[in-house]
Amino acid sequence: MSTYEQIPGDTDHGASDEGGNERSIICLRCPRGCEISTTLDGYGGIVEIFGNVCKLGRDYVEAEIADPRRILPTSVRVRGGERPLVPVWTPKPIPKGRLLDLARATRGIELEAPVAVGQVVIENWEDLGVDLVTSGAVRRV
């Protein structure tokens, strides 16, 4: 079984003729998911961005190459509530490589009901400048 064929995902096309790298990146800034092609120099700097790219897309690609980040949506336990869990998320993205670390860090957390929307659960996680915040409410029972 082959994998990922014909899917325009993030791909590294390897060395280009000019000695740099070509990469195509799917922009995650809006649901449209534009495929943006770039040429990088040998040090990871952007030489060129191809195609009809909006400002958000340009920003996204620059960030994606320098420091790829993602939003983490998950949930944490609630004690004494009408539901056992409350949804949480990082309103700002965290480094991609740390997603599962943060997910693990949330496992032991238990909030006391009632829980409100927008409640900060973890402030400035590991000094990354990102909070973990509730995105739902749980009433106390």
């Binding site: 994998t3 899917i7 799917i26 995650l28 649901p31 998911g33 991609k96």
Partner: peptide
């Protein structure tokens, strides 16, 4: 089907980011 039926952004941030393989035409 031979193509993705959901949004491409979800392919990237839900499958590719977590190394989950997608098998088309399967």
């Amino acid at each position: 089907l031979p193509f993705l039926t959901g949004l491409r952004r979800n392919f990237v941030q839900c499958l590719q980011d977590y190394d989950i393989p997608l098998h088309l035409s399967t």
